[in-house]
Structure formats: C-alpha cells, structure tokens
Nucleic acid binder design. Structure first.
Length: 230
DNA sequence: GCGACAG
DNA sequence: ATCTTGTCGC
C-alpha cells in the first residue's frame, strides 16, 4: 500500500486515490449473520492548528445494543478538513483504534457518507475497504444528491437519495418527526440491506446507538487526553 | 464564473 | 467538528 494512500500530497492526488479505492468497494453483503455492530467517531479540538484527531470505536452486541468493548487512538491529520476528503483526516486514527479492539465486528456504522460521495468513496467506504470490513455510512446531512420525493414523517420511512439519475443511497427517518439520516453503503453491504441494518440500531434517538456510543467515547477520550496534557 | 460543500 | 443560551414540544 503506497504511503500517499494515507497521507496524500495534495487534493488532486487524494482524489486519484479515492477513485482507485472506490473500484474495490463490494456492494453486497453482509457475508454472514450480524451478531456484533461497531460504531466509530472522531472528536476534535475547535480551531486546533495541530490537527489532532481523537478516534473511538465501540463494539456492541447487535441484539441488545449493549456496549462490549471500546478502543481509542489519537493521530495528527495529514490534511485539513475539506468537503469530499474527510476520510484522509479520520481513517488513519480509526484504523489505529480498531487494532485495539478484542475482536472484529460483523458490521461498522460510520459517521458520514459511504458511496454517496463525488467519487464514490466517502469515509465509510474508505474505512471499509482499508479494513476489509462491512461498513455503512450514516450522515446527518447531504454531501451530494437529492431526496427522490417527500419523506413520510414516521420512523422507518425511506426515500431514495439520487444523484445524476443514479440511486446512491437512502434518506431514512430514524425517529418520528425528526430530521432524516442519509444512509449509503460503505463496503461489503448491499444497498437494500443497509437501511434495515441501520434502523435495527435505532431506538429512541435520531442517531443509531453504535454511533452515539462512539461519539461519547471519542469526546471522553479527547477530554481525558487534554486533562493529562495540560 | 457561481453555488454547494459529510465531519 | 466545537461552543452556547434559550426555546419548543411531548
């Protein structure tokens, strides 16, 4: 694996890497039963010139949605945040965090888009391909594309997310009368299965439990790090 | 050229 | 992403 795959020289090269990795995305799966689900997220210091990213991954039981293990890792992002290139900032730290997990999850829910991305490689697909794990992108807002119709207000409602005449994801109502989530496959997951898998992780909040747990873990990790490095 | 723009 | 106060609805 070329070094610039993790730390590209410029955005032009980064885009080329994304197009290459996008070819390796597998749009079907999961290959087996989903007994465990992991949630991943990254926390940052506001206006931090050093660009430190604090990553966390939480493994939970897919049935009870109870946390089973947590792992964290801190890295310095190789590039600043630029829409369309989020993966280069967060994936290295997330991969490092996964190394600290006691076991590999059957599925991973990622904060951000999967293939609903300008070059078909949002952070969920990026992470999935590098880890070789089934991943789904769960974003809170749109990067590219438009909802193909009006989304009903009830939890579980869906409508396709289209872009240039192509269906790239699904707009999903994860809770009654709240802003929808934008779901797209990351890697080793089929487009039809993705929305159901995400909904299965949603209880009483807008965001799925794995994502909520990871968000909390990443914030706790960052605060803990700050307290010991004062 | 102008508008859009995950976290 | 992070910060922050008030406000609205169940």
């Amino acid at each position: 694996m070329p070094a610039d795959w993790l730390a590209p020289t410029d955005l032009k090269q980064a885009a080329a890497v994304q197009r290459e990795l996008a070819r390796r995305v597998v749009a079907e799966g999961p290959p087996g039963p989903v007994r465990t689900v992991a949630g991943v997220d990254v926390s940052n210091f506001p206006r931090d010139p050093t660009g430190r990213v604090f990553a966390a991954v939480v493994l939970l039981d897919a049935g009870s949605l109870k946390p089973r293990a947590t792992a964290t890792a801190m890295r310095v992002a190789p590039i600043p945040y630029v829409p369309g290139f989020l993966g280069f900032r967060e994936v290295p730290a997330l991969v490092a965090a996964f190394a600290g997990l006691p076991e590999r999850p059957d599925l991973v829910l990622v904060d951000g888009h999967g293939v609903s991305h300008p070059r078909g490689l949002g952070i969920a697909a990026h992470l999935g391909v590098l880890l070789g794990l089934p991943t789904i992108g769960v974003a809170k807002s749109i990067l590219v594309g438009h909802p193909a119709g009006e989304l009903p207000p009830a939890k579980g409602a869906t409508v396709p997310l289209s872009w240039n005449g192509r269906e790239i994801g699904t707009v999903l109502r994860s809770k009654d009368r709240v802003a929808p989530l934008y779901v797209s496959i990351g890697h080793k997951v089929g487009p039809a299965a993705a929305p159901d898998l995400v909904l299965r992780c949603c209880t009483k909040y807008r965001l799925p439990e794995p994502t909520r747990a990871a968000h909390e873990a990443a914030n706790a990790f960052r605060r803990h790090w700050a307290a010991e490095n004062a």
